[in-house]
Design a protein around this nucleic acid. Structure first.
Lengths: 351, 351
DNA sequence: TTTAGCACTCCATATCCCTGAGTGCTAAAG
DNA sequence: CTTTAGCACTCAGGGATATGGAGTGCTAAA
């Protein structure tokens, strides 16, 4: 049996009707929607074929048909049309991203919220550096005779600081010396290298001095760790409840828990190879158990030259893929464009 | 009619049974639980009285009784026993709070998460300064010939920094001058005073210099605003779904939305006068419409001398008040103790 | 190959009934 | 005067049973 053009048209119609209604689609509905001049009986025959081919499923005898994951896959690969964004939507997106003064994290967070609002699905966001980050420079600022501020700037222009409290007093010159040591020995090192260098230093330094060095370096290492950690944020989880497939709590709860736990521990499938910038995972294509009945649409964007982010939408397999991908790719493009502007990567602000 | 001791005992029993079962309580159940040697008939009479007095409600004729908000109020005010925390729980709390290296925000966030886990209810947290914050000092650090880092330290020892990019080059001496101006004119001012001073300065300064000053001061004002803004965080919203009263989505959705929106815009009822450190709002005592069928238990804690935080639990009016208040007050005490240790307020780290 | 027609299937919904828990009242007992 | 046993009454919840309608598959004719 062959997948004729007419069969494809019917499949497309079924997917789109099902996306809109969330209910099994019968031959009559297809006849109305797809303006093929064909009787319901013919459509029934075709539908029977499509079922046999594995593109459709039947919840029970004498119910309409529902697209199978394979059916969705064919749909997003071949059949899906481009979806247009309304003026209102593009405007909303642009507004959300045009908050220049804000920090990187905030922008990404906000982007997630807005995307969630206009798509009516939960959204997750993530940003990860493309390469190992190192410290670019250290600065130390005296504030009282027994406290100073350590300022650490990384090579992706993130600046962080920490107030350090000391057991005993320190002169300006001592502080300057400390600064020299830090800048000469720890700049340009990766996390592991810093740890190593610190270990070596321990044996051949005065214990007092070493303690201070250690404090600052440890802090710098925290910063690096935090920056390279792929923290996933989620937004709009409650949108799940708007979709009929999650009206039963048994379905909704595990997924909601999964998504909200996701904030710590990166369990989300942020698998997006470097070359592709849009990926759709349909139902069982998701490795994770909690996502078996769920689809994930995700896109990547670049943050300057050093970082890469992923932003994705989570929803039922019956998701409006056309709409979602349109919004998502617009979003990802906007983010890339926005972060690409400055010569320096994002870190316009600290965070 | 009078509220005899026996009536109180019966009321207490009813509240506790209802808290445990979430179903209307009949006279038989009361007879078993409260070991008053009294027949069900007598209890029925008493229950009728309690209903008339407004402490109980009847969903429909011939159903058991359910405590009214007034009934809960009496219960938490007078009848409720002390609840003990298990070893495991105290240990868990202590572990969660003992992450010294972390930032203030993180600790509070984490506290919310843990409290949510051990109480099975959603939790919100908030921290607000007791008085107006001002900037304690400015520092400027040259990084490239056309960029510097501005470091702002507030009088509650929060340190924040920002990378400032300039149109044209700046010498070290110019930077020093800028620093002097900032430190002499803007230290110790509140948000409004800073704005005023900045306005005055505009007329009588060189435009180029003013632009730079303005940039830094504007950033400082952002910091102050952010610090005084009472940002509310929530955790464990999905716990709502575990409780029968939110098994219907109609009930769950509005509340969940309310709580997750709450992250921006402080709409939560963080009304806690300075003298009280624990407050319980039962059902209709909540002003907000979305919380009409919901109870809020909250406690305050001190962050050093300058800030005050609120941490609270949200749940159905049928909430295990004894258990929740026990955990909550332990938490609040621990937080106060923890933040009280250092001589300086929290800002050990920037954020 | 398409289509009309028809019998059949099965879900969803409404209806009914029944059971059991719980009440309120009354009258007797303490 | 208070407590208690007894009894009739109420009502929500659940199961069983109809009913309607949407949809299918098949057959036979166009």
């Amino acid at each position: 049996m062959e997948l004729t053009n007419r069969k494809k048209k019917i499949l497309r119609a079924i997917v789109e009707i099902y996306i809109a209604t969330a209910e099994p689609v019968g031959s009559k509905a297809v006849a109305q929607q797809a303006n093929l001049d064909i009787s319901t009986a013919t459509i029934r025959n075709e539908m029977a074929d499509l079922t046999e081919l594995g593109y459709l499923e039947q919840p029970h005898t004498s119910a309409g048909r529902v697209p199978s994951p394979v059916g969705y896959r064919l749909y997003v690969n071949e059949l899906m049309g481009e979806h247009q964004l309304t003026m209102q939507e593009t405007q909303r997106i642009n507004e959300a991203l045009n908050l220049k003064m804000e920090e990187l994290d905030r922008v990404i967070d906000r982007a997630g919220k807005v995307l969630s609002q206009i798509s009516d699905y939960p959204v997750f966001t993530m940003a990860a550096p493309k390469k190992r980050i190192t410290v670019k420079r250290f600065d130390l600022l005296m504030v009282e005779e027994n406290a100073f501020i350590a300022v650490v700037m990384t090579d992706n222009s993130i600046v962080k600081n920490k107030l350090v409290r000391m057991p005993d007093q320190l002169s300006d010159t001592q502080l300057q010396l400390l600064s020299t040591v830090l800048n000469s020995s720890f700049v340009g090192l990766t996390l592991e290298e810093m740890e190593q260098t610190l270990d070596q230093m321990e044996t051949r330094s005065a214990p007092g001095a070493f303690q201070l060095i250690s404090l600052v370096v440890q802090f710098a290492m925290e910063v690096l760790k935090e920056q390279s950690g792929q923290t996933v944020h989620t937004a709009g989880i409650t949108h799940l409840l708007e979709h009929p497939e999650y009206h039963s709590l048994d379905k909704a709860k595990p997924l909601m828990n999964y998504l909200s736990d996701g904030q710590e521990g990166t369990k989300l499938p942020v698998t997006l190879s470097a070359d592709q910038n849009m990926n759709i995972l349909i139902g069982p294509e998701n490795v994770n158990e909690a996502l078996k009945d769920t689809s994930v649409v995700m896109a990547s964007y670049d943050i300057g030259d050093n970082m890469r982010g992923v932003i994705g939408v989570v929803g039922p397999t019956r998701m409006d893929y056309a709409k979602v991908t349109a919004r998502l790719s617009y979003f990802a493009d906007s983010l890339t464009r926005m972060f690409g502007k400055g010569e320096l990567p994002p870190g316009e602000d600290e965070e």
